[in-house]
Design a protein around this nucleic acid. Structure first.
Lengths: 218, 218
DNA sequence: ATATCGGCAATACTGCATATTCCATTGATA
DNA sequence: TATCAATGGAATATGCAGTATTGCCGATAT
């Protein structure tokens, strides 16, 4: 059945991407077109289109004449992603803290507040919030760098963060109070416009997160 | 006519990408599917697949229900790309200079030699070599950072460099002796393993190139 | 071990249906 | 008359199904 607008393509794209990031499609899973057709209710041509996009973003592996696979995971890849996040996100944060206006501050505070509420609930043992929690985490980190003034930088970061997020969802354990404190430190440094300090806190935040994830991974 | 292997898809992908980078498909050009079908001899489904890939890399703009367009250019975008190149390429260069082994040195020297030969010919007035020259430039910059040890970093750089290359091809004027000297400086610093100096020369190289391109752009 | 065969699945095309956008003509209004 | 809005048809994008061809891979035979 034909749908309106670009609905089928966009919908399957987002669903498959989400299923990869949140681990419903495990790393290295073979993505047979017929199986996908049943699961997502889209035709082969639309699916190929979708998978091509995901392949060029790195969430899917396209092998010549053998079809598509969920991109496998590895410790090395995780480490690379963390280092790239440090490079790109810290750079963006510096620019953003320098340029951010009042609206930016407002958005950062708002995003922090929502994240903080959720983190406290998770800390208290509510495990049903994992997806929400990660979304608020995403939004907080995005809000921080959103005033960096470079669309290219933001879209690079977006893909990077999603890839990194997949690893976090694979291990899915909570770092507890520590992460809350780190977020608070970054927030304070950013609002007081201390560029170096904010970037340093962010770097530490990512490094500690990496160590934690590496410890649980595999 | 059905072809063997993944040939049609890969071929049209590379052709269209090349045509965008080298200006044969001008910025903001509308890419009608029927027209592309005639021009590249591929079916609509294959073309949509190809265009989706190019869209997610940023060479093509996919507009809902309105089709595909060559991504437009702008001064701001050019500046963003240059700054990202500085961020990413200098970082990769540092890692590479630290880690590079003998093979790496060999590849760098070889790539430099080929670039140097071509640049001298271009400098002497041979305008038929533009595409070769840019390819050797590409290869030299790639050889320099290839020992950085991060696949993610290299693939990020690859897309970035291609986008930047499009701007260079759009203005397509030669900076002359100056660029030759800059390449020499980077080479020497890299081979003598002076990380800071190499990164600094690279930054300057990109900044001067940007100024030059901006001066001719529009 | 090597060679051959057959099934499964990917690649690619065509044709078709439907939805949307584009555009020029028409009609209405200031 | 000039300008703006409505409208209807042509052009185009989106999406699906069906089909042919090719390559991969495991099973069987030599």
């Amino acid at each position: 059945m034909t749908q309106s607008v670009n609905v089928v393509g966009s919908a399957t794209y987002q669903q498959i991407k989400r299923d990869i990031i949140f681990g419903e499609l495990a790393p290295a899973t073979r993505l047979k077109l017929d199986w996908l057709r049943e699961r997502y209710g889209a035709s082969v041509s639309t699916l190929r289109e979708t998978l091509s996009r995901l392949a060029s973003e790195g969430f899917v592996d396209a092998q010549d004449q053998r079809g598509f696979f969920v991109t496998p995971t590895s410790r090395d890849d995780l480490i690379e992603l963390a280092n790239l996040r440090i490079l790109i996100e810290c750079h963006a944060l510096r620019l953003s803290v320098e340029k951010g206006d009042t609206d930016w501050e407002g958005n950062v505070v708002s995003a922090y507040h929502k994240l903080n509420l959720t983190e406290k609930k998770v800390d208290a043992g509510d495990t049903s919030l994992k997806e929400d929690w990660k979304r608020y985490d995403w939004n907080f980190h995005l809000a921080l760098i959103e005033a960096c003034g470079s669309q290219n930088l933001l879209s690079l970061h977006s893909v990077l963060y999603d890839k990194y997020l997949r690893y976090q969802m694979l291990v899915l354990t909570y770092r507890g109070e520590q992460a809350i404190d780190e977020h608070r430190d970054i927030l304070d440094a950013a609002l007081s416009r201390d560029v170096d300090l904010a970037a340093e806190y962010l770097r530490t935040h990512i490094e500690l997160g990496l160590e934690h994830t590496l410890g649980v991974f595999d």
